[in-house]
Computed example of a mutant assay.
Amino acid sequence: MTGTPFSVTTRTTGAGAVVTVEGELDVATAPRLRAGVAAQALGPGRLLVVDLAGVTFCDSSGISALIAARNVAEAAGSGIALAAVPTRVSRTFGLIGLADFFPTYPSAEAALSG
Rank of each mutant, 00 (worst) to 15 (best):
G94M: 09
E24I: 02
T13V: 06
T2E: 03
G62V: 08
L48K: 03
I63Y: 12
A83T: 13
A76D: 06
T9C: 05
V19S: 07
Y105L: 01
V89M: 12
S78F: 04
S90W: 06
A108D: 03
D59T: 08
R11V: 03
A84W: 12
A68Q: 15
A53C: 01
F93Y: 13
L82S: 10
G43H: 07
R34D: 15
E74Y: 07
G3Y: 00
N71P: 02
T92D: 04
A99S: 14
V49D: 12
L33M: 05
D26W: 09
A65N: 10
S90M: 09
A30P: 09
T56E: 15
G79H: 01
F101T: 14
T104Q: 14
A75R: 14
I67C: 11
A111Y: 02
V37N: 08
G14P: 05
E74F: 11
L52A: 09
Y105E: 00
P44T: 06
T92H: 06
S113I: 00
F57Q: 13
V18E: 07
V72P: 05
D26Q: 07
L98F: 12
R32A: 15
A108K: 06
T9W: 04
L42I: 01
I80T: 02
T92M: 14
R34L: 12
Y105G: 00
A99Y: 11
V50G: 07
A99G: 07
V55Y: 05
G36W: 09
E74V: 08
F102G: 01
R11S: 11
S90E: 14
V85N: 14
A17M: 00
